[in-house]
Design a protein around this nucleic acid. Structure first.
Lengths: 157, 157
DNA sequence: TCAATATACTTAACATGTTAATGATATCGA
DNA sequence: TCGATATCATTAACATGTTAAGTATATTGA
C-alpha cells in the first residue's frame, strides 16, 4: 500500500496536493460504517424499516417518552430529517406524537405496541449480527475503538 | 455514563432490548465522522464544493484519468450518486467525461485546469485543518485508528 | 407588560444515499 | 456465430443529509 509515484498520477506538484485519499479519516470512517451497516441493512429491510427509523424506535423503547430535540441528539439525526422520519413512523403506527402541555413548542414522542412489536422482532436478529461482529473483531478492540471514536467526536466540546 | 435502570426507561423486558444505543458502533462511527467533517464542511462550502465533489476531483488529481467504476470504489460513492456528481462537476467545468474507445461501456474522467485550480485553492485550507486535528488527537493515534477502521471495513473480504 | 430575543419544530430546496430496474456494450460458451 | 450472461452506467423512486428560512411558542429584560 505505497503511494504511486508522481509520474503515474498525472500530477507533479506534490506539495500542493491534498493528503493521500487512501489514508483519509473521513473516508475511512465512512467505509467502516458502511461495512458495519452492510451487515444490518438487509436484515432491517426484511422487516421493512430503514436504519434511521430503527434508531428512533429503538431509542424510544430504551428511554421512554422523549421530545424531538432529545431524540435528534441521541439518534444523531438532524431536525429536518427527524421531522420526516417522525411523520413516517407515525403514519405506520409505530410511534405517537403529542404536543407538550408545559411547553407548546415541544413534541413528545412515544412508542406504540406496534412499535414494540417491531423491536421484539428485530432485536434478536440485530443481536446475532452484532455478536458475530464482536467475535470476529474482538470485544476488547471494539471497546477501544468506541472510546477513540467518542474522543474524536467530543474533541471540540 | 451508566445505563439507566429499567424503571426509568419505560421498558422492563431487558433481555429483549437491543444493545445500548450509546455504545452502538454504527452511531459512534457516524458521530466521529460528523465531528471530523464539521471541521471541513464550512471551508468547502466557502469554495462552493460539496464533500463528495471534493472527493472526486481530489482523487482525479491524485490518480489521473479514471473510469467511473474505479472512482466509485476509491471515493466510496455509489454509482447512482456518482452519475449525478459527475454531471454536476462536468457542468461546472471541473472535469471532462469521455467514452472509453476500448470498452464502450466505460466513462473516462479527467480533471480540467479549472478543477486543478479548485484543488490548489482548497488544499492549503484542508491541510491546515487536518494538521490541527492531528495535533489535537495525536498523529500516532490517528494512524492506529485508521488501521482499526480499515480492518473493520475489510473484515468480510 | 411587552418588545426583543431565543428556542423548538417545520418547510423548502437541493445534494446524496439506497435499492431496483433499464439500456448499452462485452464476454462467454455451445 | 449467436444467444445467454455479465458488466458498466444511467434512470427512477423514495429516504435522508444539509443549509437556510419560516412559524409558533417561551423567555428575557427594560
Amino acid at each position: 500500500m505505497t503511494r504511486p509515484s508522481p509520474e503515474t498520477t498525472g500530477i507533479t506538484q506534490d506539495a500542493l496536493l491534498p493528503r493521500d485519499t487512501r489514508r483519509s479519516l473521513p473516508i475511512a470512517l465512512l467505509r467502516a460504517r458502511e461495512a458495519v451497516m452492510g451487515h444490518f441493512r438487509p436484515m432491517l429491510a426484511l422487516h421493512d424499516v430503514t436504519e434511521q427509523q430503527w434508531r428512533v424506535i429503538r431509542i424510544l423503547a430504551e428511554a421512554g417518552t422523549l421530545d424531538a430535540s432529545e431524540m435528534a441528539d441521541r439518534a444523531f439525526i438532524l431536525a429536518p430529517s427527524l421531522t420526516r422520519i417522525i411523520r413516517s413512523l407515525e403514519e405506520r403506527g409505530f410511534i405517537t406524537k403529542t404536543k407538550d402541555a408545559q411547553d407548546g413548542r415541544r413534541i413528545l414522542l412515544q412508542i406504540t405496541p406496534a412499535g414494540l412489536k417491531i423491536i421484539n422482532e428485530v432485536s434478536p436478529d440485530s443481536r446475532t449480527i452484532y455478536t458475530a461482529l464482536e467475535q470476529r473483531f474482538g470485544r476488547e478492540r471494539i471497546e477501544t475503538l468506541l472510546d477513540m471514536l467518542d474522543e474524536l467526536a467530543t474533541l471540540n466540546k
